[in-house]
Design a protein around this nucleic acid. Structure first.
Lengths: 191, 191
DNA sequence: ACAGAGGTATACCGATCTGTCTATTCTTCT
DNA sequence: AGAAGAATAGACAGATCGGTATACCTCTGT
């Protein structure tokens, strides 16, 4: 019954479904069942609440993906698991992440389009963390070291493409397509 | 000096840079140098202006890409041109499209997250039109007919991934990576 | 026992939002 | 010349925005 956490949780649900700027503070308060004074006791401004929401989602998403990847061997299995995880997410088979509405961080960058803003940078930072997970898989594959970052970015590109295809174009098989392409591309790098 | 067009143009610039919900009507009016009455003479509401802006960008972007693809032979050359065009766009070498801030349609879907809303559907429609351009290239390659749509979606996925990587992660070489992957994947399909 | 922290509910503030209205000017067509 | 249409500036309405203030109510730790 931590009110602060309750606020963050409700705010995230509303932001994720409706966009951040479209959601007012009173709406969040009503959904969370919390008094306005309490919000401003925990956060100095709406901006701070937003930052806390982004951090909350960052941790939740990263921990979810990291824990899935820990279940399998890094490398082949890890990359399969990566795309399977995205597939599960896209097709709403992951309760933890709530109904799929695209990537919250991509969506947030769309609204806070200035790279100098804190919130934009938080989103970039999140993506870097996720890239770190991917990079570990790539290294385990035995890709030649100089190509590691390039290949990591390529896999990341496929993952981002799958998310956007699923969100905007409604292609629920996008993660499977990305997975197939990933192995074709990696085969070319490993030969 | 068409006031209606001036409004749409100014609104697009502001929406693209700052997000739609973050931009007020008065700000648009000031930027466009147009009176409020004139806006509501041409559009019944802000919603209608937004719809007109999406349509405007749809036409502008589609016509730009289509005209670039018309300069080369469909197939190999067309697909190269597709990714070169995206590369030019991402790296701000296309004045017509104004400074790159991600894909306006992806951004807009992030703000109007409900697939039943008109504006969301306009964005989906735009993506379908772009997919049509890609599909023409795929057919010209002589891919086996049953795979045409699958391959088209795969190339579209690579394109979307490149746009998002460039926007969120700041990878300005994303289009080149996508192009490389496209040929690796297509080689596998053509063999 | 009682101070203090965290909570509720709600009135309020100034700013800003979309949209309407008035009153006036410029342009264009016949 | 004169009517009609499109434009102007800007006041205004009503709602909502983020944020503050007031007054009161629980808990909890020493």
């Amino acid at each position: 019954m931590d009110k602060r956490q309750q606020l963050i949780h409700s705010a995230f649900e509303l932001f994720y479904r409706n966009g951040i700027h479209a959601v007012g503070i009173n709406q969040i308060l009503q959904t969370a069942g919390v008094a306005k004074k309490t919000l401003y006791h925990h956060f100095a401004s709406k901006e701070e609440l937003i930052a806390a929401v982004v951090e909350y989602r960052d941790e939740k998403f990263y921990n979810w993906l990291a824990s899935r990847l820990e279940l399998v061997k890094p490398g082949y299995d890890g990359l399969n698991e990566l795309f399977d995880a995205v597939d599960d997410w896209i097709n709403n088979r992951v309760d933890l992440l709530t109904d799929f509405h695209g990537c919250f961080f991509i969506n947030t960058c769309a609204e806070f389009n200035d790279p100098q803003q804190l919130i934009y940078q938080q989103c970039q930072q999140h993506k870097k963390k996720i890239n770190g997970l991917i990079e570990r898989q790539i290294r385990a594959l035995g890709i030649l070291e100089p190509a590691t970052h390039h290949v990591t970015d390529s896999i990341s590109l496929l993952k981002e493409g799958a998310i956007v295809m699923a969100h905007v174009q409604g292609d629920l098989t996008a993660a499977k397509k990305a997975k197939d392409m990933a192995w074709i591309v990696l085969a070319a790098y490993l030969s």
